[in-house]
Amino acid sequence: MNSELPFLVELIVSAFILTGAGFAVIGALGLARMPDFYMRVHLPTAGTTLGVGCTLIASVIYFSFSLQTLSLHEFLISMFLFITAPVSSHMMAKVALHTGVRYVSHTQGRPWPSRTQRPSRDNSQILTEWPKRP
């Protein structure tokens, strides 16, 4: 870590780093404290992604001033995270719906029973409903 950066750059980078760490701690605190999976799934996808985004912006500013060139590697990581976070969140919510997690009584909406949640996952019953090819 070199110390010849101007004071304003150090201030901005420190502010971004601390903001990102605060977002991450808030997300993890919500993940640990919320009573229900359907409430818990909101927090890492919002809080932790914002925290990493702020840290990556701080890294862009720091390395752009430290190496005297525009350093844009971090935008690749942040774009990748911002694209993949909703996809993985959607997959996890779908897993929660299909495996039937427990939920508290004041969660909004009710999950419906799905086909994979049947007591016997017998595919022959589903296949007999199909029309037979002549």
Binding site: M1, N2, V13, I17, G20, A21, A24, G27, A28, L31, F37, R40, V41, P44, T48, T49, G51, V52, T55, L56, A58, S59, Y62, F63, S66, E74, I77, L81, A85, S88, M92, V95, A96, T99, V101, R102
Partner: peptide, 28 residues
């Protein structure tokens, strides 16, 4: 449930990325 553990692993790797970036800033 299993879904909570998957969610936690997903959050853990995002935290690992942030810690690696911070280590890069720390070591220059």
């Amino acid at each position: 449930d299993l879904a909570d553990r998957i969610l936690t692993l997903d959050s853990l790797y995002v935290n690992a990325i942030a810690m690696i970036i911070l280590l890069g800033i720390f070591l220059g």
